[in-house]
Design a binder for these strands. Sequence first.
DNA 1: CACAGGATAACATATTTATGCGGTTACGGT
DNA 2: ACCGTAACCGCATAAATATGTTATCCTGTG
Lengths: 210, 210
Amino acid sequence: MTKLLIYEDNPQLREGLSMLINGSDGFEVLAAFKNCNNVIEEVDTWKPDVILMDIDMPGINGIEGLKKIRQVNDEVKILMLTVFDDNKNVFQAISGGANGYVLKKTPPTKLLEYIVEAQSGGAPMTASIATQVLKMFSSMNNEKGEDYNLSDREKQVLQLLVEGYSYKMIANEMFIAIDTVRSHIKKIYEKLHVNSKSEAVAKAFKDRLV
Amino acid sequence: MTKLLIYEDNPQLREGLSMLINGSDGFEVLAAFKNCNNVIEEVDTWKPDVILMDIDMPGINGIEGLKKIRQVNDEVKILMLTVFDDNKNVFQAISGGANGYVLKKTPPTKLLEYIVEAQSGGAPMTASIATQVLKMFSSMNNEKGEDYNLSDREKQVLQLLVEGYSYKMIANEMFIAIDTVRSHIKKIYEKLHVNSKSEAVAKAFKDRLV
DNA sequence: CACAGGATAACATATTTATGCGGTTACGGT
DNA sequence: ACCGTAACCGCATAAATATGTTATCCTGTG
């Protein structure tokens, strides 16, 4: 028997979900709430297996509710429900520890499947959400592009710059004169199209040269 | 009619998949190959809607094949097939532009569903894979640790430092005296435990303060 | 071989940064 | 009314950085 809690501010939807789930074999809705004001106590009291959490709620919204729960409970599976596949929310929800993210328009039978999937350790996502996630991921990893063809020595200098070394320390570290360090750095600036140490460092991070 | 190409080195599985898919209404396997050696030409010739790409292949593996295709074709949907939900591969595949990632043990009917889902712009993933993805995401964004409690103004200054502004430019931008900029920056260095602009910039990136 | 490019180095000079000290004003909390 | 803190500003000085120019040595390539 899968035990659920529901958080959903819309009374119709809240009742509809409860009835749908209670009417299905193997599922039981322990309680349904219209806000997250006492979410921690409620979860503690009812000890559900899965929580359906609406995102767009007045007061403490679903994302905040999610985070509150995760501060004290890593076990319970939390399935986020939303109307929109809004980029920002998706990101916050998954980095906040949600187990799944499904659109409200998901057909009932699918929803039950998703609940089961979540309970058994899966991460159900509506296809459009999954697409978003993949997009975020690949944009995150935007494989550089230019490599600025820095020479080996230049890369090494840049590396040390990034680690906070001064010219003097770099010279020391690399067994070369400080003026040589200057030469290298000047070259690096040309290649990266910057003109200060901190810009070079920033660029190194941005373009994942380090 | 959904047109597919299959890349799979195991002859049994290759034949099995082809027969399964060809035997289903609305699907047609254009061709099936045992390696990715000519993947670009093949994709160009057959113009499939969806490609099933095994990951573990001798020679050019599925990840490399994926990348090759993506260099010249962003349209075709690519569904990665694998035996293991191996962390590294998942990451590489999704950042390489795969549209979905499913385990080989996926039951036939599910697989057909996934193909449809991929074709219609979704991102089908086996639950265990989706879980991996979410985990990667949340571990990625966990950091935070100290927030260094920078004041609003200090955050603003740091932001500008990161963007490569000099003290003078910051003063200009923020309508304050350059000496005030100095004061702020000194305070920032204390709070971040650094003692140079570039170190502060590096720390800002590392700790995701920006 | 000549030539290009990388790595090395020196010198000079202007600008920027880091750090020390000092100070005023304003606002929220005890 | 007092304290702490943020935000603001100034002066002085030492250190670090940015920029330009020049030059040698070595290595790989046409």
